[in-house]
Simulated scan of single mutants.
Amino acid sequence: MLRSNYLALMTAGFMLGCGDESVSNHTPAVAETHLVSVKQVSDIPLEMLKTFAQLAGQEQFTPLVKYSVKTYTLVYETEYNGKSIKASGSIYVPQGLTQKAPLISLQHGTTFLKSEAPSVSSSPTGMEYFASAGYIAIMPDFIGYGESAAIFHPYYDQALAAGTVIDMIKSSREFLEKENIAFNDQLFLAGYSEGGFVTLAAAKEIENNAAHNMKVTAVAAGAGGYDLTHMLNSITTSTSYTYPGYLAFVLMAYNNTYQWNKPLEYFFQDKYARALATYMNGNYGGSFINSKLTTHVPSLLNAEFYTRLKSPSGELDLKRALTENSIRGWNTKIPTRLYHGTKDEIIPYQNSEATLESFRAAGSTSVSLTAIPSGTHGSSFFPMLKEFVPWFETMRK
């Protein structure tokens, strides 16, 4: 779930091949208006990108870094709880392209710090290298960050996650068309941890709703906690959870998004409720928040709430929300690869196994699961990246 995994793109982005440089004659039509504003943030010369590659010890990949890159912050309209709001994200555009470029939208992992949103952070995201290799790269901030930072992030909300990504893609296409930047009809989606969940949510909505006028070329999703009821079961049948901040994030997000408006003491022991009220505000990182909590679940949660949570007839509103937001497999035709470390201590590997089975039960034959042997949640993103990027390249126009 850690956004910092995406810094691995700083080196792994060099694995992008050159692709087939034949030019498609089709530029997708853009009908809807979502774009609010665009601001250029940087103009990164090709030589600087090559230098960064050499400093990272990846000299063998520097020939694949082909284009200088301009980065922009996009502000666009999306929907939150029935109202139109402004959201934001970053777009990375290769300069001097001689062919129409595919789009790739990469969804970032969990961030507790609002300052780590792609359009806000001063640190590179690694998407610069996708763009330098000839993709138009997109990274949404998500609701609750960037332009919409005043909102508590609707963590693991399937509909809002999908809408945020889709509207970012639509606004990006509007911007590209207005600027006469040539792009083709290919759309790749990828993400890890929360980003994996968001990626599958967006792919499902795009494929099942023709009104979006999009087609997904391929999907790579890693360790996404897609089956939230499975996650609940794994937490209530064990007394320990390695990263309690994530559990707190889900409960607080649902309490806010669904407007239950329960006091934090309803969910957590008083000591930890006070800590969360103080620190879960976007100004503190996940590790710091974890240090203020406990990994012992019965001690973290309010005793009565914990008892109801373990009872089949207890906390039905929460359980319904988890069921509604779980991503069940559908009969997808999109080539989809799931990735998961077999020693993931935060989201069990079995969660992806259950998700794969739900795809198969729905009749899908285009979905596979790649196990990353002995991979933890923090160590599995880079192996996933090394595998899915060349796979995307085999389908690239």
Rank of each mutant, 00 (worst) to 15 (best):
I169D: 00
I169H: 02
I169A: 02
I169Y: 05
I169W: 04
S171N: 04
S172W: 04
S172N: 04
E174D: 11
E174W: 11
E174H: 13
L176C: 12
E177N: 14
E177T: 12
E177P: 04
E177D: 14
E177I: 09
K178L: 01
E179S: 12
E179T: 03
N180A: 09
N180P: 04
I181V: 12
I181K: 14
I181N: 11
I181S: 12
A182N: 04
F183H: 12
F183G: 11
F183R: 04
N184F: 03
N184W: 08
N184D: 13
D185V: 02
Q186L: 03
Q186F: 01
L187K: 12
L187W: 09
F188W: 10
F188Q: 06
L189H: 14
L189Q: 14
L189S: 10
L189N: 14
A190Y: 13
A190H: 09
A190C: 09
Y192I: 07
S193K: 09
E194A: 06
E194H: 07
E194D: 07
G195V: 08
G195N: 08
G195P: 11
F197T: 00
V198M: 09
V198S: 13
V198D: 08
T199Q: 03
T199D: 02
T199E: 01
T199R: 11
L200G: 01
A201H: 07
A202K: 08
A202G: 10
A203S: 11
A203F: 06
A203N: 03
K204T: 08
K204E: 12
E205H: 01
E207S: 10
E207F: 04
E207M: 11
E207I: 06
N209I: 07
A210M: 02
A211H: 10
A211F: 10
H212N: 12
H212E: 08
H212Y: 15
N213D: 15
N213M: 15
N213K: 15
M214F: 06
K215V: 06
V216D: 15
V216E: 13
V216H: 14
A218I: 10
A218S: 09
A218M: 08
A218Q: 15
A218R: 09
V219F: 06
V219E: 01
A220W: 08
A223D: 07
G224E: 05
G225E: 01
G225P: 00
Y226Q: 02
Y226H: 00
D227N: 13
D227K: 06
D227E: 13
D227C: 00
L228V: 02
L228P: 04
T229I: 12
T229Y: 09
H230T: 11
H230E: 12
M231E: 07
M231T: 05
M231R: 09
L232P: 08
L232W: 01
L232C: 00
L232F: 00
L232N: 01
N233L: 02
N233Q: 05
N233K: 03
I235F: 07
I235V: 14
